[in-house]
Structures are given as C-alpha cells and as structure tokens.
C-alpha cells in the first residue's frame, strides 16, 4: 500500500492539533481507567498472596519448631487424624513452604529473605469440621499447648473480613475501571469521528482519486493508537506508585497476619505493560471502528 511515514506523521499531528482539548480529555480518561484497573488487579494479587495460606477452608495453621523430632511430629499428626473436630489437614514441609514463598515473591530476593525465616518451619494446615470462631479457637488452643509446636495461627474473623472486603472492593474497582475504559473507547471513537468529520472533504477527494480504505484509515487509527498508548504509559508509573503503598502495608509489622501483602515487581511490570497494551488496543479499536463506519457509509 506504500504508506509513507511522513504522510502518516503529518496527518496525525494535524489531527491532534485540531482537537487538543478532546485529545487531552481522552488521554486522561484512558489513564484513569487503566490506573484503576491496574491498581485493583495489583491489590487483588496482594491480598491473594497474603491469604493464600487461608484458602479452601483452612482455619488454623500449626507451625512446628524447626528442630522438632520425628516422634513429636508423628504425635501431632496422630492427634489431628484422631480428632473428630478436624475435617482435613495438609502437611506442608519446609521445602514446600519455601517454594510457596518463592513462588509468591519470585524475583524479589529481599522479600524472600525476610519471609523465609518465618515460614521455614514445617506446618499443618487444618480444616476443622466446625468453623465457628470460638470452636476453632478452642481447637487451636489444644495444639498450641502441644510440645514441639512453636505457634498456632488462626484465620481470625479479621482476616476473613479483610478478604471479603478486599475482594468486594477490588471487584467494584474493576467494574468501575472497565466502565471507564469503555467510556475511553467511546471518547476515542468520538474524537476520531470529529477528526473524520473535519476532514470529510479530504476523504472524499482521497476516495475519488483511488486511495485505498487502509490508506485513509491508517492515520486515524494511529491517532487512536497514540491516545490509548499515551494514556497507558502515563498509567504505568501511577500503578507503580500504588504498588509502593502496598509495600508500606507490608512493612507494617503489626499486621502480622497480612505478611506477604506485596506483589512481585516483575508482576507489577508485566501488569503495567498489559495496561499499556490494553490502552493501545482500545485506542486502535475505537478509532478503527469509527473510520470503518465512516468509510462504509
């Protein structure tokens, strides 16, 4: 199709200049929606990471002394097996515990270092038959007194509350973000429609002299692409900033139950790039649809 770069650049910049305000509004909307979406996904990841131990009805965890004897460990296991109040339990050995930490926080050795010491002990994850908090506490108390046990952590109502709250919250934020993203697509579509309208004479001439639809389309699609791309690129550092807030929560030692409330930096990066890609996609689609509909009339 022989599309020349200088042609596309010239046409696109002239469109931008024609519609500065609208372009700005569009870019800002893209940025806000992508930042919200990115932050919500990050937050959800962080909560997942912090509460992965508490999945599937695990109500308390029995951590053993690092140097526990095999006999004592067998004792505890036997007790868990015999107890009618225990529905199910899983044994997590040191290696598995470490692997889990590594998986959660893969590329950030500082974090792995901090958390290793705490998680290295082998543990039993216990699902009781009755999840009433008082019953769980009483059962946990029995194991807490057991020799060879270093500590027993229960999934208090608090952590459940946090889990529920956060999933509800991030769900709502994700919905808002998606609505905003759709709004951004509509804005891009509208910006491009206005650009098309202001250039309808040019387009008429282009069609008349035999320009292909792709030739006509590309500068407008590039315009939409750039709007989405810029929105996404601005969103990226904002998502990083959100991640820093997560780290602050993680550093707060008083929230011991939420240890691991952090996201691997590589995940933040990839999420950032995904948001940029999403912006570019939304921009290209929005403008592509606008031009195609305009050309098909």
């Amino acid at each position: 199709m022989n599309l020349r770069l200088d042609y596309v650049v010239r046409e696109t910049t002239s469109n931008f200049r024609r519609n500065v305000t609208l372009t700005l509004a569009t870019v800002i909307t893209v940025t806000i929606s992508l930042t919200l979406l990115g932050a919500a996904l990050l937050f959800r990841d962080a909560v997942d990471n912090a509460t992965v131990r508490w999945k599937d009805g695990v109500e308390f965890i029995v951590f053993m002394e690092p140097d526990i004897t095999a006999e004592l460990e067998a004792d505890i296991r036997g007790q868990l097996q015999d107890s009618r109040e225990v529905l199910e339990f899983t044994y997590i050995d040191k290696d598995e515990a470490y692997a889990e930490v590594q998986e959660l926080l893969g590329d950030s050795p500082e974090l792995v270092d901090v958390i290793t010491a705490e998680r290295l002990p082998a543990s039993f994850r216990v699902k009781p038959t009755d999840t009433l908090p008082e019953r769980v506490d009483r059962l946990a108390e029995v194991f807490r007194a057991q020799p060879g046990v270093s500590r027993v952590v229960t999934a208090s109502e608090t952590i459940r509350a946090i889990e529920d709250l956060s999933s509800g919250l991030s769900q709502r934020v994700i919905i808002i973000a998606i609505v905003l993203l759709v709004a951004a697509a509509v804005l891009i579509w509208n910006t491009i429609r206005m650009a098309l309208f202001s250039r309808r004479q040019d387009i008429e001439v282009m069609k008349l002299v035999g320009a292909t639809n792709w030739f006509i389309r590309v500068p407008f699609m590039v315009e939409g692409l750039i709007q989405g791309l810029v929105g996404g690129l601005v969103a990226m550092p904002l998502i990083w900033l959100t991640n820093n807030y997560l780290s602050i929560i993680n550093d707060d030692v008083s929230l011991e139950l939420l240890r691991g409330f952090a996201v691997d930096p590589s995940r933040v990066w990839s999420l950032g790039f995904q948001m940029v890609g999403l912006g570019a996609l939304v921009g290209t689609l929005g403008s592509g649809i606008a031009v195609t509909r305009f050309l098909d009339r």
Partner: peptide, 11 residues
C-alpha cells in the same frame, strides 16, 4: 500532489 500521494506514489 495530494492525489498522487494518497495512491502511494513516491515523493
């Protein structure tokens, strides 16, 4: 020139 440009003629 525009008429030639949009059908892909080189400069």
């Amino acid at each position: 020139a525009f008429a030639l440009e949009v059908i892909g003629h080189p400069r």
